[in-house]
Design a protein around this nucleic acid. Structure first.
Length: 417
RNA sequence: GUGAGCGUAGCUCAAUCGGAUAGAGCACCAGACUGUGGCUCUGGGGGUUGGGGGUUCAAUUCCCCUCGCUCACCCCA
């Protein structure tokens, strides 16, 4: 095997691609009904966009980016996520000047240099949304409801929605210090990783899976009880709207997200049917990012969904993979006639394939069988002379003659759509 | 970056304690069968056993290195 895909990347093709397209088209439809507009940003940006947008201290920026120098020596990075790029675009095109609320969605590949495993790839695909210009908790709730809607239309089971608030620039630092003090006092009971995190990312300790850490952290100060009045009020209203909208959720005070920019609402949807990479989407509010990147003070909310992981969960049985192609088979020197027939079918929006390379009718029929094909049209010399075709339904084991002119009309009754 | 498991034909897998020309099923190609299908029968093409090195009279088998895949850790979608 001379050349292979790069580690952590893969080819996606039939039949899996059918599931991708189903999801993508369904999601686009839903997004349209919430008045989201698509944005396509470049898959690479100046490294600075991500370094500043995601946060220098995050793992993503630290060790997971595909960064290289272009021919002029500028540092370029393949996007590890898309929020930073969308914010950059929002600012570059001064979209804030329109006033009001801006709703954008994107869909496309992201790149992270990580060790691949189930549900985790170096090139993976995300569908995401960003809402700019609203600090209303209604936006938090509705944007979450939007993605729950998409998930429900995907037919997924065994999902749970986890919700938390990380506070704002006023209450978070206070909480962070209190937590740090607490963790220092119980440091001996923590795992090695967590001992390190006490300084680098104390909130992350709350989410550690090591049993001893879980136990230790049970008595840690709870962010839910440390929220300031405004944050508390915001969260209560998010809860209220979610309940009105019929979205079921659970509050998880230990939910922290890996990106620096989140404020207040954070959420995550996990599946019990994936491996250890069980988060299929995550997101939250980021009220300071736009300002930090040099824009006007603009509150924002967004989420990103892992399409690879979602497709992994889609039930094969929910898809019709049956072969609806009408195979057009020549007999004798009738390939010209076959094309006429196929053309006619295609004009009527019926999928047709001419079998031009088969040495015999028998072999052609054999081929169709192996393709799990059902419909065959024999368009041989004698049919061409009479201006008819022979239509066969291989499942029903029936065949009949149809006049060329009546082809699409008659087939509409025969073909199972 | 760390750890574990696995790499044999296109696919799924065999190959005894280290032993002969590495086999089978499915798939593919051809014929029986020159205009009517899934069956059957016959024949055929396919492999540097992931790669490199070592031990041995002899390596798919044992050892080392390396690459790849998978899962887990870290982290995340």
């Amino acid at each position: 095997m001379p050349v292979k895909t790069v580690k952590g990347t893969r080819d996606i093709f039939y039949p899996d691609i059918e599931k991708w397209r189903f999801f993508e088209e369904m999601a686009r439809g839903v997004l349209k009904t919430y008045n989201f507009k698509e944005i396509i940003t470049p898959i690479f940006e100046y490294t600075e966009v991500f370094a500043r947008g995601i946060g220098e201290d995050t793992d993503i920026v630290h060790k997971e980016m595909y960064t290289f120098k272009d021919r002029k020596g500028r540092s370029i990075t393949l996007r590890p996520e898309n929020t930073a790029s969308v914010v950059r675009a929002y600012l570059e095109h001064k979209m804030y000047a329109e006033g009001g609320v801006k709703r954008l969605f994107y869909i496309g590949p992201m790149f992270r240099y990580e060790r691949p495993q189930k549900g985790r790839y170096r090139q993976f695909f995300q569908l995401g949304v960003e809402v700019f210009g609203s600090k209303s908790p209604y936006v938090d709730a509705e944007t979450i409801e939007l993605v729950i809607n998409i998930l429900e239309k995907s037919g997924l089971k065994g999902l749970s929605v986890k919700l938390n608030s990380l506070g704002c620039e006023k209450c978070r630092p206070v909480y962070r210090e209190n937590l740090k003090k607490f963790l220092e006092s119980v440091k001996d009971n923590l795992c090695e990783d967590c001992k390190r995190r006490v300084d680098t990312n104390p909130l992350r300790v709350l989410d550690c899976k090591v049993p001893s850490c879980k136990e230790t952290v049970k008595n840690a100060p709870n962010i839910q009880q440390s929220l300031c009045e405004e944050c508390k009020e915001h969260q209560d209203r998010v809860f209220h709207y979610l309940e009105t909208m019929g979205v079921k959720y659970e509050v998880d005070p230990n939910l922290v997200r890996g990106l620096d920019y989140y404020t207040r609402t954070v959420f995550e949807v996990v599946s019990e049917n994936l491996g250890s990479q069980n988060a299929i989407l995550g997101g939250g509010r980021y009220d300071n990012l736009v300002k930090e990147l040099g824009g006007p003070d603009t509150p924002a909310f967004g989420w990103a969904l892992g399409i690879d992981r979602l497709v992994l969960l889609l039930d094969d049985n929910a898809f019709d993979f049956s072969n609806k192609t009408i195979y057009v088979i020549p007999a004798g020197d009738s390939i010209d006639y076959c094309f006429k027939v196929a053309k006619s079918l295609r004009e009527s929006n019926l999928p047709a394939e001419v079998i031009s390379d088969s040495k015999s009718l028998k072999k052609a029929l054999n081929f169709v069988n192996r393709q799990n094909g059902r419909y065959v049209i024999i368009a041989g010399e004698s049919e061409a002379e009479k201006g008819i075709v022979v239509f066969k339904d291989l499942d029903k084991r029936t065949q009949k003659e149809i006049g060329f002119e009546k082809l699409s009309e008659e087939l509409k009754d025969e073909i199972d759509k």
